[in-house]
Simulated assay, not measured.
Amino acid sequence: MKVLTSLVVASIVGVSGLFGSSFNVDPSHTNVGFKVKHMMISNVNGKFNNFEGTFSIDDSTKKFTKLDGIVKVASITTENENRDKHLKSADFFDVEKYPQMKLKLVEHNGDTALVELSIKDVTKTIKMDVEDISGMVKDPWGNVRTAFVLEGKIDRQEFNIKFSKVIETGALMVGNEVKIIIEAEGILTK
């Protein structure tokens, strides 16, 4: 009976592996970006240029079963050299002390994913909207690809990004709410 039980368990594990697909993030077709209020009248958009990640999707449900990402914080760009230098400083990300941000899937239900986000010395579970998990396509070089979009919001103060300069109107120079936008394309692992 134990042998039969072991065979059944092994079969289920083997079959479930057949229905899942694992991907490596393609950095040249992926955007890891953010948007934050500037003086409460406009937005500053930025992105990170150096990152890596993997994800797995259950082929039958089109849900994430795994999602891991690492961002090199020093790769931040807002297309303004002085502002980028300030964002890398201890006022914001303190890249010398905290060179990476991390993202890890907790669970995916419906159009929402719960992920652990680590920034500086803080890890919190946040909710992100899963806007799209595309079907798989084969590119001209024989690679199988898929893509997804994740969007969420955080309060930067909760992640120890405490810069709080106030302008003469009493508004914050940099808003506390930060919108995160991840538009990712992945290549099926072989």
Rank of each mutant, 00 (worst) to 15 (best):
T30W: 08
D91K: 04
A171K: 09
K88D: 10
N176G: 11
T78S: 06
K120Y: 10
G17L: 14
N109D: 13
A74T: 09
S164D: 15
M39C: 01
G46W: 00
V95G: 08
S22Y: 13
M173N: 04
S28T: 12
K124E: 09
V115S: 06
K120D: 14
S16Q: 10
R83M: 06
E81S: 13
I154F: 12
Q157K: 14
K72E: 15
G152P: 12
K153P: 00
M173E: 08
D58K: 11
K63D: 14
E131G: 15
L18G: 08
S118E: 14
F23I: 10
G152N: 08
G170P: 00
V32R: 08
F92D: 07
A74I: 13
D155L: 08
D94M: 10
M173G: 03
K63W: 07
V32E: 04
I41H: 01
S89I: 01
G175E: 06
Y98T: 09
D94C: 05
G170F: 00
S89M: 01
L117S: 07
N49W: 07
E107W: 08
E131C: 07
V137H: 04
K37Q: 12
F64D: 06
M39Q: 02
K138E: 15
E116G: 11
S16N: 13
S75H: 05
I70F: 09
N49S: 14
V36R: 04
D121R: 03
L150R: 06
I12L: 13
M40N: 07
F55M: 10
S134Q: 07
W141L: 10
I187H: 06
K104R: 14
G186Y: 08
H38N: 02
I70P: 01
